[in-house]
Amino acid sequence: MIEYIITVLLIAAIYAIFSLGLNLEWGFTGLINFGHVAFMAIGAYTTVLLNLKGVPLLPAVIAGMALAGLCGGLLGIPTLKLRADYLAIVTIGFAEILRFFLLNEGWLTRGPMGLHGYSRPFEDMIQGDYNFFLLLLVLIVLAVCYLMLEKLIKSPWGRVLKSIREDEDVPASLGKNVFSYKNQSLMLGSAIAGLAGSFLAFYLQYINPRNFMPMETFYAWIAVVLGGSGNNKGTILGAFILFSFFSGTRFAQGYIPLSSTQIGALRIMFIGLLLIVVMMFKPEGLLGKKEELTLMG
């Protein structure tokens, strides 16, 4: 039982990091990224591939973050000067192209067979339950991400992002290079997704393209919207609620007289219902600020 709870918390914490990246882009900057999972995949595959080539984990993780951030930046160049919907279309396309690349370029990624046999942080030094140690490590990383992001969004940098979110003509009229800030937000958000990807790989011990389906992006969206767009605490809360619920219902499987496919479908329906109820009674999300979403000029 305790091992089960550790696993649930571990997954939730990894996805909380992942969702924090999206919250920076959407919640604070207003960028619609529907391909967030691509950057998680880049982080995971880069870390694993480098480690399999003998690169130590720390530089491999940093390289994964850097490559994810760089790809975010490159993707932003043609799209961020256009209207918001273009970024949405391009990112969702990019995520699928990347997944098919991972699936088909077997020489690099072993395709659907996936990659395994890479090392995990401090693996040799830990006796006893490794997942418990990994959970502590992920929670520390989550806390560091949270604190660094909070510092950023309360800074002049974060103020510019929020002004872009509301009306980008205003920062432009005051001398801020709007495109550059949007791209910085996209790069940082993508790098954070890459970091989450590395830890997902450490948890899974075996990665393949099926881990990075488009749905993962929307789980992050659900976590962000549920917890309150533009609120990092809310995003973390949303991720923990969502993934505890997912795993909790898996646990309940033995007690409900339904097949696992039926329960799988029910689970999604419940999430949908939960979102509808939250949006009806608290449209700003559980911890979101009402004034930042509903006050109109």
Binding site: R159, V160, K162, S163, E166, D169, S173, L174, E292, G297
Partner: peptide, 17 residues
């Protein structure tokens, strides 16, 4: 174009170069 979702003082603090 006052930024309605920022406070008055945040609006002001946005401007300096």
């Amino acid at each position: 174009k006052a930024l309605t979702k920022l406070t008055v003082v945040e609006n002001m603090m946005l401007a300096p170069q």
